[in-house]
Design a protein around this nucleic acid. Structure first.
Lengths: 203, 203
DNA sequence: TAAAAAACCGACTGAGCGCTCAGTCGGTTT
DNA sequence: AAACCGACTGAGCGCTCAGTCGGTTTTTTA
């Protein structure tokens, strides 16, 4: 983790994350960013060579901190079986999406994909995030199939479906359509039923 | 359905739908739109009083045609039971999201929510769309619980989870992350398992 | 077929944008 | 005490944008 960062630089990164997530890239002006942080416009360009590079920096730090959070989560925990691990990943994803609201919102915004299509650095960061999540689900499913807590499903495809599910719930929450919390129990229950071995009775 | 529309007006609506969906609202310029349609910039403002009103018109026609498609789909079909109906709705949603790619992409773009928050007309259109889909799922679930094809789940909440699932898959497809088609069979199978009555053996 | 109405045109405007740059300032090194 | 440093400043430049306006062409109507 990079420490010792100039005050203004840190303030700019923080404010820009919120603005880029809420208002979008083009709809956020450097002037607005300068007013909000108390930094002069020139200061922003002193720290970041241009607007796009500011976004890239935000995307990279966001990706790093999310991947790091998940690594720490997986390492520091014992899961009694694969199914339980899936459930915990879902919970933790929703938890993180709550406390890192703006970062997750940013990752879902479609304008990122213009940059991803044109810039390798953007692509790398975003791919790492997506792979991190889907690999985690896949590992949990494979483990569950070994210990018998999960039935005979296609690990990769089912991992992707789980990912789209939690991602969809987060999107609904970010769009202020529905409260993710209210759906939590039913979501976990749905996952259990989706994954449980054939012929078993639901809990 | 409004017929008899001036040639250029129709061309503008069509092109703007694609541009607003792919590039976003702010990143689409009226000049670009004028070049692409062969209409002069003045013509655009002759038909639509400003850029925002052009977007609103697109949102309204999009919403109307999607709701209409679903109404026709539900009316013109017999479902052998509630579960089957859920499966068919999921299929049809994915089918529509394929042939109306840009309209669905537009509906998912986050910048819409700035307008929704500030403008009642935007809000009405978007709410109608979301209610149409979730109500349909809910009705199918309730019917399934009556005919015994669906187990004891919370109808509304489960409807929302189904919605977030298909919506999530469409988003992954629109982001070019994964192919929705490759996930189709596993998605339907997941829905079946999620919904099936307790104690039954999977097919 | 002439008049009226609707559709269309494109040069133009001024506000706002990203970004530059010459320069200030307090602290460290030489 | 001179030289150098990174952090920061804000006026200003070149340019793009949404929206306007006075005029022309096409279509409808009487």
């Amino acid at each position: 983790m990079p420490k010792k960062m100039p005050k203004k630089k840190e303030a700019i990164l923080k404010a820009a994350t919120v603005l880029f997530a809420n208002k979008g890239f083009t709809d956020t002006s450097m002037h607005e960013l300068s007013e909000l942080t108390g930094a002069a416009e020139g200061t922003i360009f002193y720290h970041f060579k241009n607007k796009e590079h500011l976004l890239l920096t935000i995307l990279q730090t966001t990706n790093e901190s999310i991947v790091e959070e998940f690594d720490r989560f997986i390492d520091g925990r014992e899961f009694k079986n694969g199914l339980h691990m899936v459930e915990e990943i879902v919970s933790f994803y929703l938890y993180l999406a709550g406390i890192m609201e703006f970062q997750f919102l940013l990752l879902q915004r479609h304008y990122l994909y213009k940059f991803v299509a044109e810039n390798q650095d953007f692509r790398s960061s975003l791919e790492e995030f997506y792979n991190c999540i889907s690999d985690m689900f896949e590992k949990a499913i494979v483990r569950g199939q070994q210990d018998g807590s999960i039935g005979n499903v296609h690990p990769r495809k089912t991992a992707l479906i789980l990912f789209t599910m939690v991602d969809g719930v987060v999107r609904f929450k970010n769009f202020n359509l529905y409260d993710a919390g209210a759906l939590f129990n039913d979501l976990i229950e749905s996952c259990r039923k989706m994954l449980k071995p054939d012929g078993e009775t639901a809990r």
